[in-house]
């Protein structure tokens, strides 16, 4: 082995510095007592206290949590249905179209997605009177549809690596298709279901653009609240909020990843090859 490639490890360290330095900066400065975000004055927890008392941000966070929870649950259910239909029935007509419409919400730009959802709601409102008004429900539906694409890809990749012999054995032993699905398929792909649920949850919790299009006047999600407060300059409270989110996420990631990455789970962008 020649020396060029191992030397890239130094570059890797630089890359990590680049990726993590902004996060470290935000966390450190969230403890700064100065009102000016860029001048260090002394250590204090006061921005955390203020964050806790900030009703606008707290209420928005509550809404975002509910939206993300519902959207992730719906997305995983529909994503599973689509993925099972896609992998389990290779002869099915319209399989390509199924995969296309399941993935489309993932690859299209957010602006276009947001507008498409809004237009769809307006047309449906005109035709059938539903959704009656825009608010949490419409955000949930939009996020669930986008999240479904991510769930579909992850679950489909998992199902491709699935040992079909187990299913054949169950069929030989007289199991019904539904029995096979609930007693065999679901338990085996459970880690992937959890991972995709989390991914959709985080995507939904993070989304600003689509939510801005489809939310009505009354409902404000957390990213929308953050956006309107940072457009007018830096506020140390947002630093504190970022630090809290980074902290929760790190713990979540560390706890879950131990369980999920062990078995060579195919991730979202790290894809398993299709069996032929």
């Amino acid at each position: 082995m020649n020396g060029l490639f191992p030397r890239m490890r130094g570059f890797l360290a630089l890359g990590y510095l680049f990726m993590l330095a902004p996060l470290v900066y935000v966390v450190v400065y969230s403890f700064n007592s100065s009102r000016f975000v860029t001048v260090w004055e002394g250590f204090s927890f006061k921005w955390y206290a203020q964050l806790w008392q900030n009703n606008v941000l707290m209420k928005a966070a509550g809404i975002s949590l509910q939206v993300a929870f519902c959207a992730a649950t719906i997305a995983v259910i529909i994503g599973t249905i689509a993925a099972v239909a896609y992998t389990r029935f290779p002869m099915m007509r319209g399989r390509g179209f199924l995969s296309f419409i399941s993935i489309a919400p993932m690859v299209l730009p957010e602006v276009v997605l947001g507008m498409a959802f809004l237009m769809a709601y307006l047309v449906l409102q005109d035709w059938v009177g539903l959704p009656r008004n825009r608010g949490m429900i419409t955000i949930i539906i939009a996020h669930a549809t986008i999240g479904m694409a991510y769930a579909f890809i992850m679950i489909r990749n998992r199902l491709r690596n699935f040992d079909a012999a187990i299913i054949e054995a169950a069929m030989d032993l007289g199991a019904t298709p539904l029995g096979i699905f609930f007693k065999i398929t679901i338990p085996i792909i459970a880690p992937t279901l959890v991972a995709s649920w989390l991914l959709v949850f985080i995507l939904s919790f993070d989304d600003l653009v689509v939510a801005s299009f489809v939310s009505g006047a009354e409902v404000t999600t957390l990213p929308m609240a953050i956006f309107s407060s940072i457009k007018f300059g830096l506020t140390p409270e947002i630093n504190a909020l970022a630090a809290v989110m980074i902290f929760i996420l790190s713990i979540l990631l560390i706890v879950i990843s131990g369980k999920l990455t062990r078995k060579n789970e195919p991730g979202l962008l790290i894809q398993a090859p299709e069996e032929e």
């Binding site: 902004p22 935000v26 919790f205 990213p223 940072i230 830096l234 947002i238 630093n239 909020l241 970022a242």
Partner: peptide
């Protein structure tokens, strides 16, 4: 981590 907050960090 939140996309918005990552962009925000760079402002500072």
């Amino acid at each position: 981590t939140s996309f918005l907050l990552r962009v925000y960090a760079w402002i500072g």
